[in-house]
Amino acid sequence: MQQIFNFLIRNKNNILFLLLFGLSLFLTIQSHSFHKSKFISSANFITGGIYKKANNIQSYFYLEEYNERLLEENNLLRNKLSNVPDTLFNDTFIDSTVYEGIYEFRTARVINNNYSKVDNYITLDKGRKDNILPESGVVTSQGIVGIIDNASKNYSRVISILNSDSKINAQLKKTNHFGSLVWNGKDPNIIQLIDVPRLAPVKKGDTIITGGKSLIFPRGIPIGNIVGFALDENGSYYTIDIKLFNDMTNIGHVYVIVNKDRKEIRELEDIDD
């Protein structure tokens, strides 16, 4: 017994080191496995609060730019609205109860944004209280941003598309050939679309949109332009480089897309298990 105590006292530094190092490794490994509720995250009470305070001050400096973006978006929506070809004709056919759709948009403000690491996260200033739940899509007026993975009462955390865990279904605008959107961790403006079949007519400058094969994003949200593409080693799939429409280094306000039917679809899919 005496010897055990002596051993412990003699090696107390090594033991403490192993303990602390093991604890931090555990947290690291946990953060690398997708979809787990984490206490150590920027969406908790303290960090979210501090980020929000800081952002309250910072956002004043960007007011002009945000206004400009809003004007641009309003312009776009107005153009769409006033160019509906024949309103009389449409009125008879649009059934407003069906037209409402299953997606609901909510606004939120970005209070923390990363883009220089391999696994980047964004923190928003709204959470469960505003009915924002994990696995909701996040977009701006220009393109997609990411998916919510963790929501506390007042804050939520978004897995940015600039994250090695992020995998989003996307397709060519012209045809229906689709693939998965991933990021190789290098340039925050260029992301990759992989597993696009060789048959697809890929051309530089073509637009990529979301595919709508998941519950998270509706179909047709713009993502970016093709700037380059190459066949993979087997020669059967394209890997496409996409320049984002969205400037991921400069996001102010975002829209969170809530799928109202999600619970129902989930229940349907879970019947198998």
């Binding site: 947290l27 946990q30 990363n114």
Partner: peptide, 18 residues
Amino acid sequence: LSIDTFEDSGGIHAAACV
């Protein structure tokens, strides 16, 4: 650990610091 919570990086800063 405090840097990790703000950076959303799991425990990498804590591990490197220790």
